[in-house]
Amino acid sequence: MINKEILKQIGLTDYEVEVYLALLTHGQLSAYELAEKAGLYRQVTYDTLKRLQEKGYVSSVSEGKAKLFKAIDPELILEFLNEKTENYKQMLPELNDINRLAKMPLSVETYKGKNVVRIALRDIINELKEEGGEVLCTAVDESVPLANFELVCRQYERDMLHHNIKERVIIKEGTKGIFQKGTSKYKKIASKFYNENPVQIYGDNVQTIVWGNPDYLIIIRNKGVAESYRKQFELLWEIARN
């Protein structure tokens, strides 16, 4: 006695099990004959045959005006399943990476007031000073912090040089980068892609400054979030101009 539940466990529906077994038992059948053998409505049989053909479990052949259907060898189904298993094994490391990133701790810090630029730049240095690294900056109008925090910005530039920290910065067309000592590489982007709130990605951190009264600084600490923002930055970097 065939255990139909096992066929369901490999992904077949109730109707697909009945149709496949009827074809396996009786050989080549027309859809009309198959509907009678399987005890199914004709439209249900047609729909089920279509799905089984898409899965590769049923083949068809035309004999004159008649179209006959045949179940594939059960051994081939086992080969299909083994192939799917191998494909899944190859994909497993990537799935594990996604799962690992999702479980990483996430924290969000918010600051407000006149010192947000100082806090933002100091956090970048603190996070990268041990091993160096790269900061990715988008939507930066460097004249804004420079006008009010020139000493802080110049100290940040010296710290970048000292700790071997580099940065790539996307600025708006018509503006100019302020750091010119080899620490920073600039590209420009059209105004329509520009927003007023700078975003900086460094290590496993993302920060954004919201200019206003008062100013706000938001820092997100999570590897998955940082990697997502980093991919978006690289896309913009590709279309930006030197």
Rank of each mutant, 00 (worst) to 15 (best):
K176I: 12
D14A: 13
E16C: 13
I98P: 04
D123G: 00
N197F: 14
R241G: 00
E16T: 08
P214N: 02
T45P: 02
K4R: 13
A190E: 13
E131Y: 09
I189H: 00
R158N: 13
F179E: 04
K172D: 03
K84I: 07
G56Y: 10
K231P: 02
M1G: 15
E234C: 03
S107I: 11
L235S: 12
G224R: 01
R122H: 06
G203C: 12
D14Q: 12
E75V: 13
D204S: 15
V152E: 03
L21V: 15
S191C: 03
L217N: 04
K187R: 15
I170S: 01
G182V: 01
G56K: 04
D47P: 03
R221H: 13
L29M: 15
P145G: 10
T48C: 06
E173W: 02
L7P: 04
G174R: 04
D123N: 14
E127W: 05
I6L: 14
V17P: 03
K223S: 14
L52E: 06
A139C: 14
K187P: 00
S228E: 13
D73F: 12
L68W: 01
E196P: 08
Y156R: 02
I219A: 06
E127S: 13
D14M: 10
T85W: 08
N82D: 10
E83S: 00
Y57I: 14
I98G: 02
F69R: 10
I239N: 05
E109W: 04
L52M: 09
I2P: 05
Y20W: 14
L81T: 09
Q180H: 07
E94Q: 06
P214D: 08
I201G: 08
V44D: 12
F80K: 06
P214H: 06
E94F: 15
V61S: 10
E36V: 15
M1N: 10
K185D: 02
I98C: 01
Q28G: 09
E167G: 11
L92W: 04
N115T: 13
G11Q: 08
A71F: 07
L235M: 12
L136D: 03
N164Q: 05
P145M: 08
L106P: 03
I178T: 02
L81H: 07
Y20R: 03
Y41K: 06
A31V: 14
T25E: 15
G203S: 07
I171A: 10
D204L: 10
A71L: 09
K166A: 05
L12N: 05
E16H: 12
Q200T: 12
A66Q: 09
G182M: 03
Y32S: 11
E173C: 01
L7G: 07
E79I: 15
V206R: 04
T45A: 14
E83R: 07
P105D: 14
D215H: 09
E157S: 15
D73M: 08
Q207C: 08
Y15G: 00
I171H: 02
G39K: 08
L76R: 11
L29D: 05
D47R: 06
I119M: 03
T13A: 11
A139Q: 07
P93Y: 01
S60C: 02
A147D: 09
Y20G: 04
N164I: 01
L78Y: 09
N195M: 12
I124E: 11
F179M: 12
E196N: 11
V206D: 05
L236N: 07
Q53N: 10
V116S: 04
Y156K: 02
G56M: 11
Y46G: 05
E150G: 00
T208S: 12
V152W: 00
